[in-house]
Design a binder for these strands. Structure first.
Lengths: 150, 150
DNA sequence: TGCAATTAAATTGCGTACAATACGATTGTA
DNA sequence: TACAATCGTATTGTACGCAATTTAATTGCA
Protein backbone atom coordinates (compact mmCIF):
# COMPACT_ATOMS: atom_id res chain seq x y z
CA UNK A 1 0.00 0.00 0.00
CA UNK A 2 1.68 3.17 -1.16
CA UNK A 3 1.19 6.49 0.49
CA UNK A 4 -1.27 7.98 -2.01
CA UNK A 5 -3.19 4.84 -2.88
CA UNK A 6 -6.22 5.98 -0.92
CA UNK A 7 -6.44 8.96 -3.28
CA UNK A 8 -6.58 6.94 -6.45
CA UNK A 9 -9.84 7.33 -8.31
CA UNK A 10 -10.10 3.57 -8.66
CA UNK A 11 -10.00 3.16 -4.90
CA UNK A 12 -12.94 5.42 -4.26
CA UNK A 13 -16.31 3.90 -3.52
CA UNK A 14 -18.02 7.23 -3.77
CA UNK A 15 -16.99 7.93 -7.32
CA UNK A 16 -18.75 5.07 -9.13
CA UNK A 17 -21.78 5.79 -6.97
CA UNK A 18 -21.75 9.41 -8.00
CA UNK A 19 -21.09 8.62 -11.65
CA UNK A 20 -23.56 5.76 -11.96
CA UNK A 21 -26.24 7.86 -10.29
CA UNK A 22 -25.73 10.65 -12.77
CA UNK A 23 -25.60 8.33 -15.77
CA UNK A 24 -28.73 6.42 -14.94
CA UNK A 25 -30.71 9.55 -14.27
CA UNK A 26 -29.55 10.72 -17.66
CA UNK A 27 -31.12 7.65 -19.23
CA UNK A 28 -34.47 8.80 -17.97
CA UNK A 29 -34.38 12.18 -19.67
CA UNK A 30 -35.38 11.23 -23.20
CA UNK A 31 -38.05 8.89 -21.84
CA UNK A 32 -39.52 11.38 -19.37
CA UNK A 33 -39.33 14.21 -21.85
CA UNK A 34 -42.29 12.65 -23.67
CA UNK A 35 -44.29 12.89 -20.45
CA UNK A 36 -43.17 16.49 -19.98
CA UNK A 37 -41.54 15.84 -16.60
CA UNK A 38 -38.00 15.72 -15.20
CA UNK A 39 -36.51 12.87 -13.18
CA UNK A 40 -37.05 14.58 -9.85
CA UNK A 41 -40.62 15.33 -10.78
CA UNK A 42 -41.02 11.70 -11.80
CA UNK A 43 -39.95 10.26 -8.44
CA UNK A 44 -42.18 12.80 -6.72
CA UNK A 45 -45.11 11.51 -8.75
CA UNK A 46 -44.13 7.92 -7.97
CA UNK A 47 -44.65 8.72 -4.30
CA UNK A 48 -47.89 10.60 -4.85
CA UNK A 49 -49.32 7.81 -6.99
CA UNK A 50 -48.86 5.53 -4.03
CA UNK A 51 -50.05 7.99 -1.42
CA UNK A 52 -51.83 11.17 -2.34
CA UNK A 53 -51.99 14.31 -0.22
CA UNK A 54 -48.61 14.17 1.49
CA UNK A 55 -47.08 17.34 2.88
CA UNK A 56 -43.92 18.87 1.48
CA UNK A 57 -42.01 17.65 4.49
CA UNK A 58 -43.24 14.07 4.16
CA UNK A 59 -42.34 14.05 0.48
CA UNK A 60 -38.89 15.35 1.31
CA UNK A 61 -38.34 12.61 3.83
CA UNK A 62 -39.25 9.87 1.38
CA UNK A 63 -37.23 11.38 -1.48
CA UNK A 64 -34.22 12.63 0.51
CA UNK A 65 -34.91 16.13 -0.79
CA UNK A 66 -35.22 19.28 1.23
CA UNK A 67 -38.10 21.69 1.02
CA UNK A 68 -35.99 24.27 -0.76
CA UNK A 69 -35.69 21.83 -3.62
CA UNK A 70 -39.27 20.63 -3.48
CA UNK A 71 -41.04 23.98 -3.40
CA UNK A 72 -40.06 25.08 -6.92
CA UNK A 73 -40.42 21.52 -8.20
CA UNK A 74 -43.96 21.23 -6.89
CA UNK A 75 -44.84 24.61 -8.33
CA UNK A 76 -43.64 23.41 -11.70
CA UNK A 77 -45.79 20.30 -11.40
CA UNK A 78 -48.72 22.51 -10.45
CA UNK A 79 -48.15 24.77 -13.47
CA UNK A 80 -48.19 21.70 -15.69
CA UNK A 81 -51.50 20.73 -14.12
CA UNK A 82 -50.43 17.46 -12.49
CA UNK A 83 -50.82 18.45 -8.83
CA UNK A 84 -52.58 20.97 -6.59
CA UNK A 85 -50.88 22.43 -3.52
CA UNK A 86 -53.25 23.25 -0.69
CA UNK A 87 -52.60 24.50 2.80
CA UNK A 88 -53.94 22.30 5.52
CA UNK A 89 -56.70 24.26 7.24
CA UNK A 90 -55.99 22.80 10.67
CA UNK A 91 -52.28 23.52 10.54
CA UNK A 92 -51.59 26.26 8.07
CA UNK A 93 -47.87 25.64 8.18
CA UNK A 94 -48.44 22.48 6.14
CA UNK A 95 -48.79 22.44 2.38
CA UNK A 96 -50.30 19.23 1.12
CA UNK A 97 -49.89 18.01 -2.41
CA UNK A 98 -52.73 16.35 -4.29
CA UNK A 99 -52.86 14.79 -7.71
CA UNK A 100 -55.21 16.24 -10.29
CA UNK A 101 -57.04 13.97 -12.70
CA UNK A 102 -54.30 14.76 -15.24
CA UNK A 103 -51.73 13.71 -12.67
CA UNK A 104 -53.51 10.44 -12.08
CA UNK A 105 -53.88 9.88 -15.81
CA UNK A 106 -50.15 10.29 -16.28
CA UNK A 107 -49.65 7.11 -14.30
CA UNK A 108 -50.88 5.10 -17.27
CA UNK A 109 -48.37 6.67 -19.60
CA UNK A 110 -45.62 6.17 -17.06
CA UNK A 111 -46.13 2.41 -16.97
CA UNK A 112 -43.68 1.91 -19.80
CA UNK A 113 -40.92 4.02 -18.24
CA UNK A 114 -39.31 1.33 -16.04
CA UNK A 115 -39.25 -1.05 -19.00
CA UNK A 116 -37.61 1.45 -21.31
CA UNK A 117 -34.93 2.39 -18.84
CA UNK A 118 -34.49 -1.13 -17.51
CA UNK A 119 -33.14 -2.20 -20.86
CA UNK A 120 -30.04 -0.08 -20.18
CA UNK A 121 -29.34 -1.98 -16.99
CA UNK A 122 -27.71 -5.21 -18.02
CA UNK A 123 -27.46 -6.70 -14.56
CA UNK A 124 -28.88 -10.10 -13.71
CA UNK A 125 -31.84 -10.24 -11.38
CA UNK A 126 -29.56 -11.46 -8.60
CA UNK A 127 -27.06 -8.69 -9.12
CA UNK A 128 -29.78 -6.07 -9.26
CA UNK A 129 -31.20 -7.29 -5.96
CA UNK A 130 -27.77 -7.33 -4.37
CA UNK A 131 -27.07 -3.82 -5.56
CA UNK A 132 -30.48 -2.70 -4.37
CA UNK A 133 -29.99 -3.98 -0.86
CA UNK A 134 -26.44 -2.65 -0.57
CA UNK A 135 -27.58 0.77 -1.69
CA UNK A 136 -30.38 0.90 0.85
CA UNK A 137 -28.04 -0.26 3.56
CA UNK A 138 -25.61 2.48 2.64
CA UNK A 139 -28.37 5.04 2.35
CA UNK A 140 -29.60 4.04 5.77
CA UNK A 141 -26.34 4.66 7.53
CA UNK A 142 -25.58 7.76 5.50
CA UNK A 143 -28.71 9.49 6.68
CA UNK A 144 -29.15 8.10 10.17
CA UNK A 145 -25.81 8.03 11.92
CA UNK A 146 -23.53 9.48 9.34
CA UNK A 147 -22.93 12.83 10.95
CA UNK A 148 -19.27 13.65 10.52
CA UNK A 149 -19.18 17.16 11.87
CA UNK A 150 -16.58 17.89 14.45
CA UNK B 1 -47.79 -8.55 -9.39
CA UNK B 2 -50.27 -5.72 -9.54
CA UNK B 3 -50.54 -3.39 -12.46
CA UNK B 4 -48.71 -0.42 -10.95
CA UNK B 5 -46.11 -2.31 -8.93
CA UNK B 6 -43.36 -1.36 -11.34
CA UNK B 7 -44.03 2.28 -10.48
CA UNK B 8 -43.58 1.88 -6.74
CA UNK B 9 -40.64 3.82 -5.40
CA UNK B 10 -39.48 0.76 -3.50
CA UNK B 11 -39.23 -1.19 -6.74
CA UNK B 12 -36.91 1.27 -8.43
CA UNK B 13 -33.22 0.47 -8.64
CA UNK B 14 -32.43 3.92 -9.91
CA UNK B 15 -33.80 5.76 -6.93
CA UNK B 16 -31.48 4.45 -4.19
CA UNK B 17 -28.62 4.94 -6.60
CA UNK B 18 -29.61 8.53 -7.19
CA UNK B 19 -30.26 9.21 -3.52
CA UNK B 20 -27.15 7.47 -2.19
CA UNK B 21 -25.02 9.27 -4.74
CA UNK B 22 -26.35 12.62 -3.62
CA UNK B 23 -26.06 11.83 0.07
CA UNK B 24 -22.52 10.60 -0.05
CA UNK B 25 -21.34 13.55 -2.11
CA UNK B 26 -22.95 15.73 0.51
CA UNK B 27 -20.76 14.11 3.15
CA UNK B 28 -17.73 15.43 1.34
CA UNK B 29 -18.77 19.07 1.46
CA UNK B 30 -17.75 19.94 5.02
CA UNK B 31 -14.50 18.02 4.60
CA UNK B 32 -13.55 19.52 1.25
CA UNK B 33 -14.59 22.99 2.32
CA UNK B 34 -11.45 23.13 4.43
CA UNK B 35 -9.39 22.48 1.30
CA UNK B 36 -11.34 25.15 -0.56
CA UNK B 37 -12.58 22.76 -3.25
CA UNK B 38 -15.89 21.18 -4.25
CA UNK B 39 -16.51 17.48 -4.79
CA UNK B 40 -16.25 17.71 -8.56
CA UNK B 41 -13.02 19.64 -8.25
CA UNK B 42 -11.79 16.99 -5.82
CA UNK B 43 -12.29 14.08 -8.20
CA UNK B 44 -10.68 16.11 -10.96
CA UNK B 45 -7.63 16.56 -8.76
CA UNK B 46 -7.64 12.85 -7.90
CA UNK B 47 -7.16 12.15 -11.58
CA UNK B 48 -4.52 14.82 -12.08
CA UNK B 49 -2.55 13.64 -9.05
CA UNK B 50 -2.26 10.29 -10.77
CA UNK B 51 -1.61 11.64 -14.21
CA UNK B 52 -0.71 15.24 -14.84
CA UNK B 53 -1.24 17.11 -18.09
CA UNK B 54 -4.41 15.46 -19.34
CA UNK B 55 -6.62 17.26 -21.83
CA UNK B 56 -10.14 18.38 -21.03
CA UNK B 57 -11.52 15.59 -23.13
CA UNK B 58 -9.46 12.92 -21.40
CA UNK B 59 -10.50 14.22 -18.02
CA UNK B 60 -14.10 14.15 -19.10
CA UNK B 61 -13.84 10.56 -20.18
CA UNK B 62 -12.39 9.42 -16.88
CA UNK B 63 -14.84 11.44 -14.80
CA UNK B 64 -17.96 10.97 -16.95
CA UNK B 65 -18.25 14.73 -17.23
CA UNK B 66 -19.06 16.91 -20.20
CA UNK B 67 -16.52 19.48 -21.39
CA UNK B 68 -19.16 22.13 -20.77
CA UNK B 69 -19.02 21.12 -17.13
CA UNK B 70 -15.27 20.87 -16.97
CA UNK B 71 -14.36 24.17 -18.59
CA UNK B 72 -15.74 26.42 -15.83
CA UNK B 73 -14.61 23.94 -13.17
CA UNK B 74 -11.04 23.99 -14.46
CA UNK B 75 -11.11 27.75 -14.66
CA UNK B 76 -12.16 27.84 -11.02
CA UNK B 77 -9.29 25.53 -10.10
CA UNK B 78 -6.98 27.78 -12.07
CA UNK B 79 -8.23 30.87 -10.27
CA UNK B 80 -7.54 29.13 -6.96
CA UNK B 81 -4.03 28.46 -8.17
CA UNK B 82 -4.15 24.65 -8.20
CA UNK B 83 -3.84 24.08 -11.96
CA UNK B 84 -2.67 25.75 -15.15
CA UNK B 85 -4.50 25.32 -18.45
CA UNK B 86 -2.28 25.39 -21.51
CA UNK B 87 -3.04 24.85 -25.15
CA UNK B 88 -1.09 22.07 -26.77
CA UNK B 89 1.20 23.65 -29.33
CA UNK B 90 1.02 20.72 -31.73
CA UNK B 91 -2.75 20.53 -31.68
CA UNK B 92 -4.19 23.81 -30.61
CA UNK B 93 -7.65 22.40 -30.18
CA UNK B 94 -6.43 20.70 -27.03
CA UNK B 95 -6.26 22.34 -23.65
CA UNK B 96 -4.06 20.43 -21.26
CA UNK B 97 -4.31 20.75 -17.53
CA UNK B 98 -1.23 20.79 -15.30
CA UNK B 99 -0.91 20.92 -11.55
CA UNK B 100 0.87 23.85 -9.98
CA UNK B 101 3.08 23.32 -6.96
CA UNK B 102 0.12 24.41 -4.82
CA UNK B 103 -1.97 21.79 -6.56
CA UNK B 104 0.58 19.11 -5.82
CA UNK B 105 0.90 20.29 -2.23
CA UNK B 106 -2.84 19.93 -1.75
CA UNK B 107 -2.43 16.20 -2.17
CA UNK B 108 -0.90 16.00 1.28
CA UNK B 109 -3.82 17.73 2.89
CA UNK B 110 -6.24 15.53 0.96
CA UNK B 111 -4.79 12.36 2.43
CA UNK B 112 -7.19 12.49 5.35
CA UNK B 113 -10.29 12.98 3.21
CA UNK B 114 -11.04 9.31 2.45
CA UNK B 115 -10.67 8.45 6.12
CA UNK B 116 -12.99 11.19 7.27
CA UNK B 117 -15.71 10.30 4.78
CA UNK B 118 -15.15 6.56 5.06
CA UNK B 119 -16.39 6.67 8.61
CA UNK B 120 -19.86 7.44 7.29
CA UNK B 121 -19.90 4.26 5.23
CA UNK B 122 -20.74 1.49 7.64
CA UNK B 123 -20.41 -1.34 5.17
CA UNK B 124 -18.15 -4.32 5.73
CA UNK B 125 -15.13 -4.65 3.51
CA UNK B 126 -16.85 -7.45 1.62
CA UNK B 127 -19.98 -5.45 1.09
CA UNK B 128 -18.04 -2.42 -0.03
CA UNK B 129 -16.17 -4.49 -2.60
CA UNK B 130 -19.39 -6.08 -3.83
CA UNK B 131 -21.01 -2.69 -4.17
CA UNK B 132 -17.94 -1.35 -5.92
CA UNK B 133 -17.89 -4.06 -8.55
CA UNK B 134 -21.63 -3.92 -9.15
CA UNK B 135 -21.45 -0.17 -9.64
CA UNK B 136 -18.66 -0.42 -12.16
CA UNK B 137 -20.46 -3.17 -13.99
CA UNK B 138 -23.55 -1.00 -14.18
CA UNK B 139 -21.54 2.04 -15.16
CA UNK B 140 -19.93 0.03 -17.91
CA UNK B 141 -23.13 -0.98 -19.58
CA UNK B 142 -24.75 2.39 -19.01
CA UNK B 143 -22.09 4.11 -21.04
CA UNK B 144 -21.49 1.40 -23.62
CA UNK B 145 -23.66 2.74 -26.38
CA UNK B 146 -21.92 6.12 -26.22
CA UNK B 147 -18.24 5.70 -26.91
CA UNK B 148 -15.53 3.53 -25.48
CA UNK B 149 -12.31 4.47 -27.13
CA UNK B 150 -9.25 5.38 -25.17
C1' DT C 1 -0.52 20.64 -53.97
C1' DG C 2 -4.59 23.93 -52.64
C1' DC C 3 -9.00 24.58 -51.03
C1' DA C 4 -13.60 23.19 -49.56
C1' DA C 5 -15.99 19.99 -46.59
C1' DT C 6 -15.87 17.41 -42.60
C1' DT C 7 -14.49 16.22 -38.08
C1' DA C 8 -12.80 17.36 -33.46
C1' DA C 9 -12.06 20.07 -29.09
C1' DA C 10 -13.22 23.52 -26.14
C1' DT C 11 -16.11 27.34 -24.92
C1' DT C 12 -20.46 29.85 -24.22
C1' DG C 13 -25.26 30.22 -23.06
C1' DC C 14 -29.28 28.31 -21.23
C1' DG C 15 -32.30 25.51 -18.32
C1' DT C 16 -32.81 22.52 -14.47
C1' DA C 17 -31.27 20.59 -10.05
C1' DC C 18 -29.88 20.88 -5.47
C1' DA C 19 -28.33 22.68 -0.79
C1' DA C 20 -27.57 26.24 2.57
C1' DT C 21 -29.19 30.26 4.56
C1' DA C 22 -32.25 33.64 6.08
C1' DC C 23 -36.90 34.80 6.68
C1' DG C 24 -42.00 34.89 7.62
C1' DA C 25 -46.01 32.84 9.18
C1' DT C 26 -48.19 29.55 12.26
C1' DT C 27 -48.62 26.69 16.21
C1' DG C 28 -47.84 24.73 20.76
C1' DT C 29 -46.50 25.63 25.20
C1' DA C 30 -44.37 27.49 29.48
C1' DT D 1 -49.16 36.09 26.26
C1' DA D 2 -44.28 35.60 25.13
C1' DC D 3 -41.29 32.46 22.98
C1' DA D 4 -39.45 28.44 20.89
C1' DA D 5 -40.23 25.07 17.39
C1' DT D 6 -42.04 23.91 12.90
C1' DC D 7 -42.94 24.38 8.05
C1' DG D 8 -42.62 26.39 3.72
C1' DT D 9 -40.68 30.10 0.74
C1' DA D 10 -37.19 33.26 -1.33
C1' DT D 11 -32.53 33.90 -2.41
C1' DT D 12 -28.03 32.66 -3.70
C1' DG D 13 -24.35 29.78 -5.40
C1' DT D 14 -22.60 25.56 -7.44
C1' DA D 15 -23.30 21.75 -10.45
C1' DC D 16 -24.56 19.56 -14.58
C1' DG D 17 -25.85 18.44 -19.49
C1' DC D 18 -27.29 19.90 -23.96
C1' DA D 19 -27.12 22.73 -28.02
C1' DA D 20 -24.96 26.14 -30.64
C1' DT D 21 -20.64 28.39 -31.72
C1' DT D 22 -15.70 29.05 -32.51
C1' DT D 23 -11.39 27.58 -33.78
C1' DA D 24 -8.23 23.98 -35.29
C1' DA D 25 -7.00 19.82 -37.74
C1' DT D 26 -7.99 16.37 -41.17
C1' DT D 27 -9.89 14.49 -45.32
C1' DG D 28 -11.53 14.54 -50.11
C1' DC D 29 -10.90 15.88 -54.47
C1' DA D 30 -9.72 18.46 -58.51
Amino acid sequence: MKKYDSLKLENQLCFPLYAAGKEIVRKYHPVLEKLNITYTQYITLLVLWEQDGLSVKELGKKLYLDSGTLTPLLKALETKGFVKRVRNSRDERLVEVFLTSEGRALREEALSVPLQVGQCVALSKDEAMQLYSLLYKLLGNLTNEGDNSE
